[in-house]
Design a protein around this nucleic acid. Structure first.
Lengths: 331, 331
DNA sequence: CTGTTAGCGCGTTCAG
DNA sequence: CTGAACGCGCTAACAG
């Protein structure tokens, strides 16, 4: 294994000089930079990331906290997209990304969790899929000991940033689109919301309430808890009495659609997310499509920014409104 | 941050002793072990994994090489399961797991790829989803510089192990089951295979050929390249002429099923994998269900075993034959 | 059985 | 602008 010393020797300079060149420090003459660059190329030197992480007390590593569902593995598609995006931008930033399962923090209190992460030279957290029931995680974030980029959790302070859509607006947009396409306004809407008390659920619900007001339509809200089964049950029970069904997630939209099929009635349904599964169910369905990969990538960038000493902020990502057609999906 | 020194001081022993206790070395008296344990608890000490990785030239880190598909994100479900299992057993083994995308090795030759990995203190590779077109990876494995656990790639030597099903047997089993349930033997079978030249495709095809022989049934083989679209096309073209369609993957089974629906004819179809999507398409479909999470976990264990100096081996995982029913899947 | 000490490879002062 | 030297936290000989 070639080390920084080998490079230094080969280039006839000191190790510190090589280090400076690698890390793009100023105060190195053009000429020596070139010599060092050449030596690096010739020897095929790649800096040892572990040693770097240990040495520099500055730039730590970024952990990405994931919560793969044991239940609905279809949703893992989203998690994988977050992760892929995150890995890509971590590579660009030359930062190590350490994937950690929510489960690894279970049974620990904040202090223990903090130590656990600290012991891995982790300085920043990208948190995907945190809910209000993840108490330890929440307190961990609240302590502001780590720089945190939260996906879909609207908390912003000096060391915490929010990354996600404008869920309120997106929910309004997709619902309006679906309503307009199918009925025109002033009809009865059934809204199947996410979790009571959920971060994004609240925003999406707020969007629906606002839309109902604006379009002057009557709307009932039921809580589907992001469960396909629950959404199906709700639809079986109440669906017939409404003209259109708006769901706070794709999975619930699928449940609702299936219920309608079982009941042999047709109502437009719309979802939220853009998972593959969505394209497989009805002949066509509207949904908000999120670019999860880009969200993951942005979250890592944001985390790195925080670790660089910047203040937290809200990063609002774009969303797309799409109509999924059966045949489009086949690859 | 509390270090090993703090613990040593607190327990009144030397750092090396603490290290020994942590790593379960012998040659430490019960009494001192206890004292050290107590000190560790009191201080809430957690060993710094980065420092450990740097120091110990012995036990390196394990990389898990993933290939999330940009096309059919539904398949990412499998990748996520591999990863989750791998993370869990890595945690048990107290080994760092470094996820790496195939893409990160692209454009590198074996030497460069080797350096890239070496520079991250990586000593073992868990490879998921490698195909015969991944030349760099293949040569990387062939060099035997890293200890490799290959998922679904049957290569075994001193530093390489195979982890996966008995694909030949599994394919035979699920096809036989489907045939028997629906028709009894001696009927016309359409087999849609995976990639020409694919590692598992060959094994699965071999299974089908053997089964055809045993049951004395006539069978045609077409190559679906693991593509839903391709399988659909094949089925549209030839499907009507056969009694039953056996596919080498779930995705292709879905394509075939859709084609049949379009043609408005019914033939039994069976798949292979057990992805969520499979349960959403037909009323019912047979498939081999693999426990991807357990496979990921086992691959990491196997890799660790190799790094411990053991020889490579084949690890054959169990599989399940399941019949997916529409309503079972809803959560 | 326990303690001392020399690295692992790199980042980073601080003289020169 | 350069280079020698120390330290990050831990492991692993080796000496006691």
């Amino acid at each position: 294994m070639t080390t920084i010393r080998d490079v230094a020797k080969h280039a006839g300079v000191a190790v510190s000089t090589v280090s400076k060149v690698i890390n793009h420090y100023p105060n190195v003459s053009e000429e020596t930079v070139e010599r060092v660059r050449q030596a690096i190329d010739e020897l095929g030197f790649v800096p040892n990331s572990v040693a770097a992480a240990l040495s520099s007390k500055q730039s730590g590593r970024i952990a990405i906290l994931l919560n793969p569902s044991t239940q609905t593995q279809a949703i893992d598609e989203i998690t994988m997209q977050y992760l892929t995006g995150a890995m890509l931008s971590a590579q660009e930033l030359r930062t190590e990304l350490v994937p950690i399962l929510f489960g690894s923090l279970e049974g620990k209190d904040e202090t223990e969790a903090e130590r656990y992460l600290e012991a891995q030279n982790i300085k920043g957290l990208v948190v995907c899929g945190m809910s209000k029931e993840d108490y330890v995680l929440q307190r961990l974030v609240a302590r502001e000991h780590f720089k945190c980029a939260l996906v879909d959790v609207p908390i912003v302070n000096d060391s915490t940033s929010y990354i996600g859509l404008d869920h309120k607006q997106a929910q309004k947009d997709i619902a309006r689109k679906t309503i307009m396409e199918n009925l025109g306004p002033s009809k009865e809407i059934l809204y199947i919301s996410g979790k009571m008390n959920g971060f994004v659920s609240e925003q999406r619900l707020a969007g629906m309430l606002e839309l109902a007001e604006e379009l002057d339509l009557s709307m009932s809200v039921h809580c589907g808890e992001f469960s396909e089964k629950k959404a199906r049950e709700i639809t079986l029970k109440y669906g017939a009495g409404y003209d259109i069904i708006v769901c706070a997630s794709d999975l619930m939209a699928i449940g609702a659609m299936k219920a309608l099929i079982e009941m042999d009635i047709f109502h437009p349904v719309c979802g939220f997310d853009g998972i593959t599964l969505m394209g497989y169910v009805g002949k066509q369905m509207n949904t908000v499509r999120q670019n999860f990969r880009e969200i993951g990538a942005e979250a890592v960038r944001e985390c790195a920014r925080l670790m660089g000493g910047e203040k937290g902020q809200s990063v609002i990502m774009d969303h797309e409104l799409v109509r999924l057609e059966y045949l489009d999906i086949i690859v």
